[in-house]
Simulated scan of single mutants.
Amino acid sequence: MAKASSKSSSKTEKGIAIDIGISAKDREAVAHELSKMLADSYTLYLTTHNFHWNVTGPLFNTLHDMFMTQYTEQWQALDEIAERIRALGHYAPGTYAQYGKLASITAPTDVPEANDMVRFLVKGNEAVAKTARAALERAEEAKDAPTVDLLTRRLDIHEKNAWMLRSLLQ
Protein backbone atom coordinates (compact mmCIF):
# COMPACT_ATOMS: atom_id res chain seq x y z
CA MET A 1 0.00 0.00 0.00
CA ALA A 2 1.28 3.44 -0.93
CA LYS A 3 2.25 5.78 1.86
CA ALA A 4 -0.17 8.72 2.08
CA SER A 5 1.51 12.07 1.77
CA SER A 6 0.23 14.84 4.02
CA LYS A 7 0.32 17.19 1.04
CA SER A 8 -2.36 15.34 -0.92
CA SER A 9 -4.46 13.66 1.74
CA SER A 10 -6.79 14.83 4.45
CA LYS A 11 -9.42 13.45 6.79
CA THR A 12 -13.05 13.29 5.73
CA GLU A 13 -16.04 13.30 8.02
CA LYS A 14 -15.49 9.57 8.65
CA GLY A 15 -11.76 9.89 9.25
CA ILE A 16 -10.76 8.14 6.02
CA ALA A 17 -7.92 9.92 4.27
CA ILE A 18 -8.44 11.20 0.73
CA ASP A 19 -5.31 10.64 -1.34
CA ILE A 20 -6.13 11.27 -5.00
CA GLY A 21 -3.05 13.32 -5.88
CA ILE A 22 -4.66 16.71 -5.26
CA SER A 23 -3.79 18.58 -2.08
CA ALA A 24 -6.49 19.29 0.49
CA LYS A 25 -6.09 23.01 -0.16
CA ASP A 26 -6.56 22.57 -3.90
CA ARG A 27 -9.52 20.22 -3.42
CA GLU A 28 -11.16 22.81 -1.17
CA ALA A 29 -10.57 25.60 -3.69
CA VAL A 30 -11.94 23.54 -6.58
CA ALA A 31 -14.94 22.41 -4.51
CA HIS A 32 -15.69 26.05 -3.67
CA GLU A 33 -15.66 27.01 -7.37
CA LEU A 34 -17.83 23.98 -8.18
CA SER A 35 -20.24 25.09 -5.44
CA LYS A 36 -20.66 28.41 -7.26
CA MET A 37 -21.20 26.45 -10.47
CA LEU A 38 -23.84 24.31 -8.76
CA ALA A 39 -25.62 27.40 -7.40
CA ASP A 40 -25.68 29.12 -10.79
CA SER A 41 -26.71 25.90 -12.52
CA TYR A 42 -29.55 25.27 -10.08
CA THR A 43 -30.80 28.83 -10.38
CA LEU A 44 -30.74 28.57 -14.18
CA TYR A 45 -32.44 25.16 -14.05
CA LEU A 46 -35.26 26.46 -11.86
CA THR A 47 -35.73 29.58 -13.99
CA THR A 48 -35.78 27.57 -17.21
CA HIS A 49 -38.35 25.18 -15.75
CA ASN A 50 -40.45 28.13 -14.54
CA PHE A 51 -40.38 29.66 -18.02
CA HIS A 52 -41.35 26.30 -19.55
CA TRP A 53 -44.48 26.26 -17.39
CA ASN A 54 -45.39 29.89 -17.96
CA VAL A 55 -44.42 30.85 -21.52
CA THR A 56 -47.20 32.24 -23.74
CA GLY A 57 -47.50 33.79 -27.16
CA PRO A 58 -46.84 32.93 -30.80
CA LEU A 59 -43.60 31.05 -29.98
CA PHE A 60 -45.25 28.95 -27.28
CA ASN A 61 -44.56 25.51 -28.81
CA THR A 62 -41.01 26.34 -29.85
CA LEU A 63 -40.06 27.84 -26.48
CA HIS A 64 -41.99 25.33 -24.39
CA ASP A 65 -40.14 22.45 -26.09
CA MET A 66 -36.76 24.21 -26.08
CA PHE A 67 -37.03 25.11 -22.41
CA MET A 68 -37.97 21.51 -21.54
CA THR A 69 -34.94 20.16 -23.43
CA GLN A 70 -32.68 22.62 -21.63
CA TYR A 71 -34.04 22.16 -18.10
CA THR A 72 -33.99 18.37 -18.45
CA GLU A 73 -30.32 18.44 -19.42
CA GLN A 74 -29.55 20.92 -16.65
CA TRP A 75 -31.25 18.70 -14.06
CA GLN A 76 -28.92 15.82 -14.93
CA ALA A 77 -25.89 18.12 -14.72
CA LEU A 78 -26.74 19.22 -11.18
CA ASP A 79 -26.15 15.71 -9.89
CA GLU A 80 -22.85 15.40 -11.72
CA ILE A 81 -21.56 18.71 -10.32
CA ALA A 82 -22.66 17.86 -6.76
CA GLU A 83 -21.11 14.40 -6.95
CA ARG A 84 -17.80 15.87 -8.10
CA ILE A 85 -17.81 18.17 -5.06
CA ARG A 86 -18.39 15.09 -2.88
CA ALA A 87 -15.60 13.16 -4.63
CA LEU A 88 -13.28 16.02 -3.68
CA GLY A 89 -14.23 15.46 -0.03
CA HIS A 90 -16.62 18.35 0.53
CA TYR A 91 -20.35 18.71 1.04
CA ALA A 92 -22.35 20.09 -1.87
CA PRO A 93 -24.55 23.09 -1.12
CA GLY A 94 -28.21 22.20 -1.39
CA THR A 95 -30.38 24.96 0.04
CA TYR A 96 -31.84 28.11 -1.44
CA ALA A 97 -30.02 30.10 1.24
CA GLN A 98 -26.67 28.62 0.21
CA TYR A 99 -27.42 29.13 -3.49
CA GLY A 100 -28.43 32.73 -2.81
CA LYS A 101 -25.01 33.40 -1.32
CA LEU A 102 -23.06 31.55 -4.03
CA ALA A 103 -24.96 32.32 -7.26
CA SER A 104 -24.01 35.10 -9.64
CA ILE A 105 -27.48 35.14 -11.19
CA THR A 106 -30.84 35.84 -9.62
CA ALA A 107 -34.21 34.45 -10.60
CA PRO A 108 -36.80 36.88 -11.95
CA THR A 109 -39.44 38.08 -9.52
CA ASP A 110 -42.31 37.90 -12.03
CA VAL A 111 -43.28 36.11 -15.24
CA PRO A 112 -41.74 38.04 -18.14
CA GLU A 113 -42.97 38.11 -21.73
CA ALA A 114 -41.63 35.33 -23.98
CA ASN A 115 -38.86 37.42 -25.60
CA ASP A 116 -37.75 38.64 -22.18
CA MET A 117 -37.64 35.02 -21.00
CA VAL A 118 -35.30 34.25 -23.88
CA ARG A 119 -33.12 37.27 -23.09
CA PHE A 120 -32.99 36.28 -19.43
CA LEU A 121 -31.96 32.71 -20.31
CA VAL A 122 -29.27 33.96 -22.73
CA LYS A 123 -27.77 36.00 -19.90
CA GLY A 124 -28.22 33.11 -17.47
CA ASN A 125 -26.41 30.64 -19.72
CA GLU A 126 -23.64 33.16 -20.30
CA ALA A 127 -23.33 33.71 -16.53
CA VAL A 128 -23.03 29.97 -15.94
CA ALA A 129 -20.38 29.82 -18.68
CA LYS A 130 -18.39 32.57 -16.91
CA THR A 131 -18.67 30.71 -13.61
CA ALA A 132 -17.55 27.51 -15.33
CA ARG A 133 -14.51 29.29 -16.81
CA ALA A 134 -13.40 30.53 -13.40
CA ALA A 135 -13.83 27.04 -11.94
CA LEU A 136 -12.05 25.51 -14.93
CA GLU A 137 -9.06 27.78 -14.39
CA ARG A 138 -8.85 26.70 -10.74
CA ALA A 139 -9.23 23.01 -11.66
CA GLU A 140 -6.47 23.31 -14.26
CA GLU A 141 -4.15 24.86 -11.66
CA ALA A 142 -4.88 21.88 -9.37
CA LYS A 143 -4.33 19.41 -12.23
CA ASP A 144 -7.85 18.08 -11.56
CA ALA A 145 -8.59 16.43 -14.92
CA PRO A 146 -12.07 15.04 -14.04
CA THR A 147 -13.27 18.50 -12.99
CA VAL A 148 -11.68 20.07 -16.08
CA ASP A 149 -13.54 17.53 -18.22
CA LEU A 150 -16.85 18.20 -16.45
CA LEU A 151 -16.49 21.95 -16.78
CA THR A 152 -15.42 21.76 -20.43
CA ARG A 153 -18.61 19.82 -21.20
CA ARG A 154 -20.72 22.32 -19.24
CA LEU A 155 -19.13 25.25 -21.08
CA ASP A 156 -19.96 23.67 -24.43
CA ILE A 157 -23.59 23.14 -23.42
CA HIS A 158 -24.17 26.60 -21.93
CA GLU A 159 -22.48 28.41 -24.80
CA LYS A 160 -24.57 26.40 -27.28
CA ASN A 161 -27.76 27.10 -25.32
CA ALA A 162 -26.98 30.83 -25.28
CA TRP A 163 -26.37 30.79 -29.04
CA MET A 164 -29.60 28.91 -29.76
CA LEU A 165 -31.64 31.23 -27.55
CA ARG A 166 -29.93 34.34 -28.95
CA SER A 167 -30.80 33.16 -32.47
CA LEU A 168 -34.50 33.37 -31.61
CA LEU A 169 -34.14 37.12 -31.01
CA GLN A 170 -32.56 37.98 -34.37
Results as ranks from 00 to 15, higher is better:
Asp65Ala: 10
Met66Arg: 09
Asn50Val: 03
Glu141Thr: 15
Leu168Val: 09
Ile16Asn: 15
Gly89Leu: 12
His158Cys: 03
Gly21His: 03
Pro93Glu: 12
Ala82Val: 01
Asp26Arg: 09
Trp53Glu: 04
Thr131Val: 10
Leu169Ala: 03
Leu34Val: 07
Val122Cys: 00
Val122Phe: 04
Ser5Leu: 14
Arg166Val: 00
Asn125Val: 06
Ala24Gly: 00
Tyr45Met: 02
His90Arg: 15
His90Ser: 15
Phe120Gly: 01
Ala4Cys: 14
Met1Thr: 07
Thr95Asp: 06
Ala31Asp: 07
Ala135Gly: 13
His158Gly: 00
Arg86Met: 13
Leu121Trp: 00
Ile20Cys: 01
Ile81Lys: 01
Trp75Leu: 12
Glu141Cys: 15
Asn161Gln: 07
Pro112Met: 00
Arg153Asp: 14
Ala24Leu: 02
Arg119Ile: 03
His64Gln: 04
Thr131Met: 03
Gly89His: 06
Met37Asn: 14
Ser167Met: 13
Thr106Val: 13
Asp19Gly: 07
Gly100His: 07
Pro112Phe: 03
Phe60Arg: 10
Ala87Ile: 04
His158Tyr: 10
Ile85Pro: 03
Tyr71Ser: 09
Gln76Asn: 10
Ser9Val: 02
Ile81Phe: 01
Arg86Asp: 05
Ala114Arg: 02
Ala145Ile: 14
Ile105Asn: 05
Thr106Ile: 09
Tyr91Glu: 14
Leu136Phe: 14
Asn161Lys: 11
Lys101Pro: 08
Lys14Phe: 15
Ala135Asp: 04
Pro112Arg: 01
Val55Met: 04
Leu121Arg: 00
Ala135Phe: 15
Asp65Pro: 00
Gly89Pro: 04
Ala135Val: 13
Asp19Gln: 11
Arg133Cys: 05
Val118Ile: 15
Leu102Asn: 10
Asp65Tyr: 07
Thr147Asp: 05
His64Arg: 07
Trp163His: 08
Tyr91Arg: 09
Asp65Thr: 11
Ala29Asn: 12
Tyr91Asn: 08
Gly94Arg: 10
